[in-house]
Write a protein that binds this DNA or RNA. Structure first.
Lengths: 205, 205
DNA sequence: TGTACATCAGTGAACGCGCGTTCACTGATGTAC
DNA sequence: TGTACATCAGTGAACGCGCGTTCACTGATGTAC
C-alpha cells in the first residue's frame, strides 16, 4: 500500500494495479513495463524481483481479472436461484458490469493477446469463468425439450459472443463509434430475444 | 506491382498490402512502419511520400477494409433478394467470410484503435457498411408486427454484436482459447435462434 | 529525334527516444545468539 | 537488550535495439520546344 521507506511493502500488487490503469488508458499496446514501474514509484529493474518480465505482469493482471470475473458471475448466478431464468439473466448482467467496472482487467483478458494457457493459475481461473457461464446455461436449458435443446456449451457460447460483441462494439468508448443505445439495454433486449427464440420466455415477454 | 528500378510503380498500395500482412501476423501492436517499408523493398523514409505516418497507413488499410466489407455485404444482400430472410442470412454469412478471408483488414478496422472519423473516406466507408447491415435488418423487420418490432438499428446492432463476438472469441485462433464448434455453425445457429425469437422463422425452423 | 529542364520518388544518414533487460551494488529488514 | 550477520528488495547505470520521423540529397521520369 503506502510506501514505507526503502522497501515498498506490496510492490507486486502495486505493479499489477499500475499496469491495469495504464492498460485502461492506453490499451495493451500503450502499456509499458517502465511506465508501470514509474507509476509504482520504483525503478524498472525492481519489477524483475516480482515478475519474469512484461508479459508475465500482463498475465497476472489477466489472471486476477478472471478470478474477479468468475466470482462476480458466480455470485450473480447464486443470487438468481432458484429460478434458472433469473440466475441466467443476472449472470448476463454481471458480464457487462464486469466489463464496465474493470476495463483494464477485461482488456488484459481478452485483448492483450496473452495466451490463457500461459500459466496454470491463469488457465484455471479462465476455466472457472467458463464453467459458471456454462452451468447457468445448462440449468436453463433443462426447461427446453431435450430434442430441440442445443448443447449447453453452444448456448453459452452464443450468449458470451453477444455479450463480448456488445462490449467491444458499443460499451467501450470506441473512437468514433457511437452506440445507438445504452449497451445494457442492447444486451438485455438481445439476450431476451435470443431466449424467446429458445422458447424460454413467453412470446410477449 | 513489380519494382521497376528506382521508382517502385505502386508503392502506396504495396505499403498497404505489407501493412495488412504484418497486422495479420502480429496484431496492430506488432505492426511497424519500418518493417512495412522493408517488406515493400523501400526505405522507411519513402513511406512519407505517400502517407502522413504510421497511423495514416493503418487508417488507409482500414478504409480499404470497409470498402471491401461493404461491397461483400451489399453483394450478399442483393443475392438473397427478393426474400428478406434469405438476404439477411446471406449478409450474416458474408460478415464471417470477410473476417476469415481478410483478417488484416478486420483487425485494422476493429482492433487497431484507429478512429473511424480519422479521415472522411474512412468515415464514409464505415457508414456505408453500417447502412447495408441496417437495410437488411429493416427489410426483414417489415415482417414483424409494428408494435412488437424493435428499431432496425437495434436489430442490426444485436446481429453485429453476435457476429463480432463470434469472430473475436471463436474464429480468430485466439491463443489458448479453443472453439467448441465451427464459428460458422455457431453464428448460424445463434442468429437462427435470435430470428426465431423475433418470430421471423418458424419455431421448428 | 534530341536536348534542357522541371518534377517526382526515392535514398541514406542522422536524430532523439523510450523500450525491456542485465548487472553489480547497497541499504533495509529480520533473525540467532 | 544488543550485536553480528544473512537475506532480501530495492537502486542506478548501462546495454543494444528498433522505432518514427526529418533532412538534404540524387537519380529517374516526363515534358516542352
Amino acid at each position: 500500500m503506502a510506501k514505507r521507506g526503502y522497501h515498498h511493502g506490496n510492490l507486486r500488487q502495486a505493479l499489477v494495479d499500475a499496469a491495469l490503469e495504464l492498460i485502461t488508458d492506453k490499451g495493451p499496446t500503450g502499456f509499458t513495463l517502465s511506465e508501470a514501474a514509474k507509476q509504482a514509484g520504483v525503478t524498472p529493474a525492481a519489477v524483475y524481483r516480482h515478475f519474469e518480465g512484461r508479459e508475465d505482469l500482463i498475465a497476472e493482471a489477466a489472471r486476477q481479472g478472471y478470478e474477479i470475473f468468475a466470482d462476480l458471475m458466480e455470485y450473480a448466478y447464486q443470487s438468481g436461484q432458484p429460478s434458472a431464468l433469473a440466475a441466467f439473466e443476472a449472470t448476463g448482467r454481471a458480464y457487462l458490469a464486469f466489463a464496465r467496472r474493470h476495463p483494464g482487467h477485461y482488456i488484459a483478458m481478452f485483448e492483450s493477446g496473452i495466451s490463457v494457457n500461459r500459466t496454470a493459475g491463469l488457465a484455471a481461473a479462465a476455466q472457472r469463468s467458463k464453467d459458471v457461464l456454462e452451468q447457468a446455461a445448462a440449468d436453463l436449458s433443462q426447461h427446453i425439450p431435450a430434442d430441440k435443446r442445443p448443447p449447453a456449451s453452444m448456448f453459452s457460447a452464443h450468449v458470451w459472443a453477444m455479450s463480448h460483441g456488445v462490449v467491444e462494439l458499443f460499451a467501450r468508448n470506441a473512437p468514433g463509434r457511437v452506440s445507438p443505445f445504452p449497451p445494457e439495454d442492447l444486451l438485455e433486449t438481445g439476450i431476451g430475444i435470443y431466449l424467446r427464440g429458445l422458447g424460454l420466455v413467453p412470446p410477449d415477454g
